[in-house]
Design a protein around this nucleic acid. Structure first.
Lengths: 135, 135
DNA sequence: TCATTGATCAACTGTTTGGTTGATTAAAGA
DNA sequence: TCTTTAATCAACCAAACAGTTGATCAATGA
């Protein structure tokens, strides 16, 4: 049993959880409000045991929580983990955009002639040759 | 061989591709500019064949593209697929936020007394009882 | 107490995945 | 032509995963 998962582990589990279309449909349903396992299993062709496993995956990823309401155990969406995902994606998406802006500025300074001959994109700046250690 | 993958399949592959820490580090590296397989394999303990497979997964998900530059085959980040991921996540994250705002407005109209007794959250609005068919 | 309902646990199975080693292709250069 | 370098292909293996069936647990209500 993992007690203190790293941020990397949490990203692993969250991305893996959303890599399944059944789990994405469960998230979509929960975005409109909590629901029980039986309610969530209804639209699918699989057994409720399988849906229960999917919910365990989502819970382990921190995407949903379960409470107790008499016999029912309603599942709730927890959007904090979703925010962590968009934060990770946007981080590198924006770095990439910035790389392009820097290159464009550089080419503009040189007069822009080099840009027309670089059709492969292979001449893009690769940055300093340091080890890529970021996660 | 799949020739026309659905949007759902593309999301599958993209989320699955990012569910691996090695592939996320590759994306992080590529956000700073293109790189070859050998360069990408350098920081890892695994063989370059394994890294080549990871890049195939990323390419199949539409997250990267490969070009030809003499013997080298530089890998480039393609941020369009990343945008699709954030779009999906934010869609349901914002729907969820809107649900909360609607509930808060409802409780405010009633005088807000019911809110204090609902500590489990089980009484959240579950929306109309229609089948959850959205993807 | 006992039956019912909601949900999970346990064990098993077929498929997929991440990694390896060894062989092969493709382009450059001596 | 022969060698070197970059990268992929092919076959294989162990581990993980998604699904199943059957049994069990927990709370409710007659």
């Amino acid at each position: 049993m993992i007690v203190d998962p790293s941020a990397d582990d949490r990203l692993d589990h969250a991305f893996m959880a959303l890599a399944d279309p059944v789990r994405r449909r469960i998230i979509a349903r929960l975005s409109r409000g909590p629901a029980t396992v039986n309610e969530l299993a209804d639209p699918f062709e699989i057994t409720k045991q399988a849906v229960s496993k999917h919910i365990q995956v989502l819970e382990h990823a921190g995407l949903v929580t379960r409470t107790r309401d008499a016999q029912r155990r309603p599942v709730h969406l927890d959007p904090a983990a979703l925010e962590a995902l968009t934060a990770w994606i946007d981080r590198y998406r924006l770095i990439h955009e910035q790389q392009f802006r820097s290159l464009d500025a550089l080419l503009a300074d040189r007069g822009g002639r080099a840009a027309a001959s670089d059709t492969t994109g292979a001449g893009r700046p690769a940055g300093p040759r340091k080890k890529a250690t970021e996660s």
